[in-house]
Design a protein around this nucleic acid. Sequence first.
DNA 1: CTGTTAGCGCCTTCAT
DNA 2: ATGAAGGCGCTAACAG
Lengths: 333, 333
Amino acid sequence: MPSETPTLTDVARLAGVSENTVSRVVRNKGSIAEETRRRVTSAIDQLGYVPNRAAGSLASSSSLIIGVLLPSLSNIVFPEVLRGIHAALVSTPYQPMIGVTDYDLRQEQKILASMLAWQPAAIITAGFEHTDESRRMLQSNRIRVAELMDIDNRPIDLAVGFSHRKAGRAAAEHLVRRGYRRIAYVGHDWTADRRAFFRYEGLCDGLQQAGLAVAAELRFNGPSSTLAGRDTLGRLQQQAGDVDAVVFSNDDMAVGGFMHCLGDGIDVPAQLALFGFNGLEIGQALPKPLSTIRSNRFLIGKTAAETLLQASERAVEPHIIDTGFDIIEGATA
Amino acid sequence: MPSETPTLTDVARLAGVSENTVSRVVRNKGSIAEETRRRVTSAIDQLGYVPNRAAGSLASSSSLIIGVLLPSLSNIVFPEVLRGIHAALVSTPYQPMIGVTDYDLRQEQKILASMLAWQPAAIITAGFEHTDESRRMLQSNRIRVAELMDIDNRPIDLAVGFSHRKAGRAAAEHLVRRGYRRIAYVGHDWTADRRAFFRYEGLCDGLQQAGLAVAAELRFNGPSSTLAGRDTLGRLQQQAGDVDAVVFSNDDMAVGGFMHCLGDGIDVPAQLALFGFNGLEIGQALPKPLSTIRSNRFLIGKTAAETLLQASERAVEPHIIDTGFDIIEGATA
DNA sequence: CTGTTAGCGCCTTCAT
DNA sequence: ATGAAGGCGCTAACAG
């Protein structure tokens, strides 16, 4: 039985050309006579030939793999970035290889090293914080590197995202414009999630600009979640009653806050205004749609992957793409 | 400058042994003299040697890649499965390569073919439906194959999941036990999401057993979402008012249903009981925790990956692992 | 326990 | 526009 997986050689033999010619047709490189191309293509179809990627990578010392480093999969934001990346790759021969760092830079370094063993065409990573060793690996390698989510830093090669500081400021301006004055903050642990901190800083800036300051604040000592948002707002209200608006570190937390208000019969936004961040679907499905900021995660992933594939070489200067954000007015603030 | 990435040969030269010996040390295969191993290990550290995976795959015609085929990343359930898979792989040299099929079997086939070009050690796929061609590829290849989520089918090699039919029946039994009699169903499009259909079937079975039938039903013509759940329950109530409980196709839909009730001032569960499926965090963060069924997605992914790695060869007979489910009593039904 | 010998399947370079 | 030769870095036999 001819059940063996066919190789370039088999195709070449059947088409009556050299292996090299087949390789050229497959990779769409160099010029090929129309007639030859037809013969080769038909031989490929006939045999059901699929190129062996390992052999290709070894010979060219570069693979069709795109390494994707994500801090987490629990936070829906990152699967959405991945979705964008996937959308950009699906019609190409590139395949995403993913790694989850759990917000741990040493873990990132470990995964990065083992990814580089595949000689990927590019690395996409969510965030700008790396160990020195990781940075060295990313810099020395001439592969393309995209750093996502944030543009408040100088990237190694390409940054795609938006300014979280500006987003925080925008939240402050929105609330001030609406007449809120005693504005509190409810957050989660930002030692790992640096961007949450940037937004907080922006919020403070924005309030200061209006002659205000954060009226009260409480941070849950762990990752963001609806439950954390609910409980933390509850605790904040016990400690500081005279607040008229709360900015949350993200929508998960804000939705939790809304739940707290529902449970305690607090009228939103009359008694207390709530403001989130991300623009998740769940926020818009609340009885009153959440006032928040839309961060376009899918677009960030897609743009990054597309941009990387446009050129196999780095530009001399790092490139920054701002995907922006917009305020979702909602009805809670 | 010696900035070239070191190869096996470099390590062998430095350690004063043959390449093969280094290879054995790296792969931890065969027996090596303690002294030799030390010399090799130190040479590896000194050079910062990282094996070239492409070369290894080519030579052994099998890679350290695990192909993961997911129908979607928008539904939080699948990122969680992926999280489980990742947890099982993180301390091994295996790397997950992911593909998203968008519930499209032709797309699955395409991605599968390009994954197999990497000669992965195993394929993990969520679901049992495949095109004939996909099935052929999975069967003929002697690589390991895990089919996840569901165990209501005969797998190719390994199935990990639970019976969605039984879960549906359990929902029915729970509601009947609680005294509900006019039980409706609110769902989403199940032509793609086969498991939702299985649960529906189980629900009907369970009701029938109690001499009942689905009192009313409405399916949103698209994927599940909170918004869809909210609107579809709204429409159902216009059409059929005399219902005392609603089973939703999943928690997303159920949470949406809860939002509808909040908005319309419907007392849950006194006027209308709500029952979901999945046990998502958001359901438990509602003012009244959602009554639902916990499906252990993380465990499914982790168990699958672990089990696959235990043996590189398929057993003669397909193997099925039931990860089970449990009822979360909650307060909405 | 270790070394030798052949490739794995493809791509690159250089010819023609 | 096509072909020939060589090698990418590693592993699989087989020797010893």
